[in-house]
Design a protein around this nucleic acid. Structure first.
Lengths: 255, 255
DNA sequence: TTGAAAAATGCAATAACCTGCATTTGCATA
DNA sequence: TATGCAAATGCAGGTTATTGCATTTTTCAA
């Protein structure tokens, strides 16, 4: 579904857009919505009030939060929707009909899942229940959820069973949620999560690392893989941006 | 013979045109329709009101929206919400600290997951990603997500892997989402789902069947289990309600 | 505590709505 | 074909809904 020109949006329509935005990235600012939907902040506030009254969202000072799942707590501080949309669009170019794709979780990957074309015919393995649900909205995608103990913080399946299951898979592409990325490679902070991500990298012919540039040059305690194992680094920046210079020639392709 | 263009459409024809437009664009503006169909906006409004009365469209200020426009991915607008809350509260009495519980999916079970006390210390196995996420909001609950191919319609894991995994479990209680329930037992319509539910019943010491009374006496093509295998039938009705009479003494306990 | 951003409140302009009512139209029947 | 009648339509008017702006109040963080 495409967000087209917002000329004469009906009120209900606008409110559906707002809910969509909130479900997608778990929070919105009234000011952003005002710009995006071309109405005054007063109108946005009134919409948010109505939606909150209907228990669809949680209204807070400055904007609103998703009512159902708020797992942004430990993830990023500076949340930025625009950047992730750009990243998602770039990532789409890697995905073709007939592929088998392995993905982890996270808001960036969620943005990708959401933007996948209706017509895409592919098989997705994922360790994230949320991504699984998002993917299953697409009629032609086969979704296989990799089960296991659900990590409380990151809401993905972890544990030996998951690793074993992943080892049975041979995927064309692994789309990896990134927490730490620098010239040492991809890193993460949770032992269980790292085990799973390592297995995911091993199980895939190619690895894509979509991340907002803010996370570049951040390193966490545990290593997931080397830079040389990363086939695609995807950020919101232009590939020749100076922040990416240090990765040129080390990862295979920068998008 | 005279070729009449779009002039003088009959009322029914005009309304069909309107519906076509809505199916095409997901929305229409009264003003656009007035121009396009050469009638006054009043007439359009009258048409829209009629169509809305027939539940064909959703009328809003300024025009109308397609009925399918409100996708309910994470919506809280569950059918029979009040009844399900009552059922959920009753079900809580079956759940104690230290238990191992196996659950399927569905909105009733979601209501239960949502109402679980913060302090509850238990292990939940579930085949529903949505329930898994809901449960993981509770700090003291260990959530184990049973993975598999995600059924497009019911959004739960199905397939041989799931059945095999369930066979390894020994649960204290199985909370089963119900689609069909009558004096023949529990039934369902999807073959894959039935295989999984059968395994769930076998893997559990006790079986709870929470369902709104509306689903009582409805029977679907495939049998999940006998009435005698059901330990708890939980509806929103009082246990001595006449609709439940026929189940007295057949299922172990009625709540 | 203070100042800036956000929210609430009141108000006005515009567009959309509704209700009768008069006129026209479709259609069945004489 | 003519005719009668109910339904459909357009129009006038008064009412309500929606929105943006100005002003005051509240909230939040430094």
């Amino acid at each position: 579904m495409v967000l087209t020109e917002n000329k004469n949006l009906l009120k209900k329509e606008r409110q559906l857009q707002i809910i969509r935005q909130i479900n997608l990235h778990n929070k919105v600012l009234s000011s952003d919505l005002s710009l995006e939907l071309n109405v005054s902040e007063d109108t946005i506030r009134r919409d948010l009030n109505e939606l909150a009254l209907e228990d669809k969202i949680i209204k807070v000072h400055g904007g609103a939060l998703s009512k159902s799942f708020n797992f942004t707590a430990t993830q990023e501080e500076t949340y930025s929707f625009e950047e992730k949309q750009i990243i998602a669009r770039k990532t789409l170019s890697l995905i073709k009909d007939g592929m088998t794709i392995l993905t982890s979780g996270g808001t960036t990957i969620r943005a990708i899942a959401n933007l996948l074309p209706e017509t895409l015919n592919a098989t997705f393995f994922t360790i994230s229940p949320l991504i699984a649900l998002e993917l299953s909205e697409h009629p032609n995608i086969e979704v296989i959820l990799l089960g296991g103990k659900l990590s409380n913080s990151s809401k993905i399946s972890v544990g030996g069973d998951v690793v074993a299951k992943i080892q049975e898979i041979k995927a064309d592409l692994c789309i990896l949620g990134i927490n730490g990325f620098d010239n040492e490679g991809i890193s993460d902070s949770d032992y269980e999560v790292v085990q799973v991500k390592k297995a995911m990298v091993r199980a895939s012919k190619q690895v894509a690392a979509p991340t907002i540039s803010e996370k570049l040059n951040s390193s966490l305690r545990l290593k997931v893989c080397e830079l040389s194992e990363v086939d695609f680094l995807i950020t919101e920046l232009a590939p020749n941006h100076q922040s990416l210079e240090m990765f040129q020639g080390v990862v295979r392709v920068i998008l």
